[in-house]
């Protein structure tokens, strides 16, 4: 195989980063590799500081963004909980699911589509709650 590593295949020194594969020596960290959003940080010679492990700390910032989004779902759920207990609990239950989605590494488009669909569902619940409240 002459090209870069595919999902799950070994790293290619100096080659581009590939989701699902381990971190590329000398290259940026990759989602799904040992240093992916949910995985442990890669270790080895020449990987000392955070910038070596995660250039620009992009992975860490993305992980934190997923956490903030999950917290937002929890906050919305808590708000809805005051008017509609069942709907509020369902929305709050979505928070850990969203947080977990950020830790997964495969099917990223599907994950993001699921987040968008969940927000649309939350908006529909909010519309029902708004319509039924005086």
């Amino acid at each position: 195989m002459t090209g870069p590593a595919g999902p799950g295949s070994p790293a290619v020194p100096g080659g581009p980063a590939v989701p699902g594969g381990p971190a590329v020596p000398g290259g940026p960290a990759v989602p799904g590799g040992p240093g992916g959003p949910g995985g442990p940080a890669p270790t080895g010679p020449g990987r000392d500081g955070p910038e070596d492990l995660d250039p620009g700390l992009a992975r860490e910032r993305t992980s934190l963004a997923w956490t903030r989004t999950a917290l937002s779902f929890a906050a919305v759920g808590a708000f809805v909980l005051k008017k509609d207990v069942a709907a509020g609990l369902v929305i709050m239950a979505a928070a850990p699911v969203i947080w977990r989605l950020g830790r997964l590494v495969h099917h990223r488009p599907g994950q993001l589509k699921l987040v968008a669909a969940t927000i649309v569902a939350v908006a529909l619940v909010a519309l029902v709650v708004a319509a039924t409240s005086g």
């Binding site: 581009p16 940026p28 989602p31 250039p55 992009a58």
Partner: peptide, 15 residues
């Protein structure tokens, strides 16, 4: 596949 940093940045914008 683009630079993962750009992919991460795009994902953060979506979030």
């Amino acid at each position: 596949e683009p630079d993962p940093r750009f992919t991460f940045a795009n994902e953060r914008t979506f979030l």
